[in-house]
Amino acid sequence: MNAFLAAFLHDLAGFWRNPSSAIVGIMCPFFAWLFHRMGFYPSFSAALTIQLIAGSVSTVGFLSAMGEEREQGAWGAVARTSACAEALVAGRLSACLLTCLALSALCAALAGVEPVQVPFALLAALPTILPATLLSFALGLVAPDQSRANAWGTFILMPCILPTLCAMFIELRLWPLPSYATTELLGVAASRGLAPFPAAVLAGVSIAWIGLGYAAFSLALRRETGSRRGLS
């Protein structure tokens, strides 16, 4: 519990100490408010900024930071303590999820979503947040340095925001991507007059991506705890 709480609090504060991630935490809510003021549908503004939050918080705030820490040897000193590796990673993962959810709620509210609908917006955000966070941590646990972590992060960030942009501007449904469920659930496609998408397909795709993220995360965590036992 000590390790979980220590990692959780450290990473929660670390997100705001890192200028790159702090700017994400400030700019996304600002854009949600700006889009709302410019007259965009709340569904579009909320979906896009929530997806941006999910993609950038997990990659810029955590994946990139994990690569940087590994490169600087900062995490090595933590890994060599007697603290449980699983608890440490769980603490970090929880900090990432909480940051994503808190900022998503703020973005939804600033984008014009009715306060009573904000919990629903958060539920709709989960199909984007969970795979992005799990995959970011899986890559973060194996990233040898920051430059590679940043490159890998691009492959997570871009698919997060494309579905809403494509649905809104070219009426293209990128349903195989994990974040499309958020686009659909928040009604971006509906606002363009597109027929409802089959819920079973959305659920299946979301579950598949979350499962894939979890499997990758578990493998990376097993590798991390294995290497810790060898202190390598």
């Binding site: 100490r17 820490e69 600087q72 040897g73 900062a74 090595g76 060599r80």
Partner: peptide, 13 residues
């Protein structure tokens, strides 16, 4: 407790 030459700490802490 270990102190290796590579242990630099978290720069932003």
């Amino acid at each position: 407790a270990y102190y290796l030459e590579t242990d630099k700490g978290f720069d932003r802490d």
